[in-house]
Simulated assay, not measured.
Amino acid sequence: MYELFALGELRTGDKHGYMLQEVLKRIGTVRAISSGTLYPLLSRLTDEGSIHLRLEEETEGGRPKKIYSLTESGRERFAALMAKPLAHNAETALVFRIKMVYFRYVPKTVRLACLTQYLDYLRGQREYVSRFERQLIAAQPEPEIQRIQLLRTLDHRKHMGAADLDWVRAEIARVEASDPDEAQG
Rank of each mutant, 00 (worst) to 15 (best):
T153G: 15
L41P: 15
R97D: 05
P64I: 06
V168R: 00
V129H: 03
T29Q: 06
T37F: 09
V106P: 02
A113K: 08
R157L: 04
E9F: 01
F103Y: 05
P85C: 05
L4S: 09
F96E: 00
D164N: 12
D166P: 01
R169L: 15
E60H: 10
R11M: 13
V129K: 08
V168E: 08
L10R: 03
E127I: 09
M1R: 07
A170M: 05
N89D: 15
F132N: 11
V168S: 07
V175R: 01
V110G: 10
H16W: 14
G161R: 06
R152Y: 14
T12L: 11
E133K: 14
L4M: 00
L7V: 05
D166W: 03
L38W: 04
D155A: 15
H16S: 04
F96G: 00
L94Y: 03
L42D: 01
R31F: 10
A79D: 12
A32Q: 11
L94K: 06
H159T: 06
G124V: 04
L115N: 02
A79K: 10
Y68P: 00
L55S: 10
I172Y: 01
R11H: 02
P85S: 02
P64D: 10
S43V: 03
F5P: 00
S178I: 00
P180S: 12
S50F: 14
L45D: 06
M1I: 05
L20C: 05
E58V: 10
R11K: 07
L151Y: 01
R31A: 06
A83C: 10
L122F: 01
T37Q: 15
L4V: 03
G17Y: 05
E3Y: 03
E144V: 11
V23S: 15
K108V: 04
K84Q: 11
Q21S: 13
L7A: 07
E144N: 07
I51F: 07
G61L: 02
C114I: 03
D166R: 08
E22T: 08
K15V: 01
L150V: 06
A90I: 10
I67M: 13
A177T: 00
M19C: 12
I67T: 04
F103W: 09
E57G: 09
A139N: 02
V101Y: 04
A32K: 13
T153W: 07
C114V: 01
G161Q: 13
E60Q: 08
E3P: 01
Y68V: 07
R104P: 09
G17I: 08
V101H: 03
V30M: 04
L150K: 13
D120Y: 12
T109Q: 13
H159D: 15
I172G: 00
E56A: 11
L41I: 11
K15H: 08
Q135S: 11
Y102T: 00
P107R: 04
T37L: 06
E91P: 00
D120I: 00
A80S: 15
H52W: 12
Q135V: 04
R152C: 10
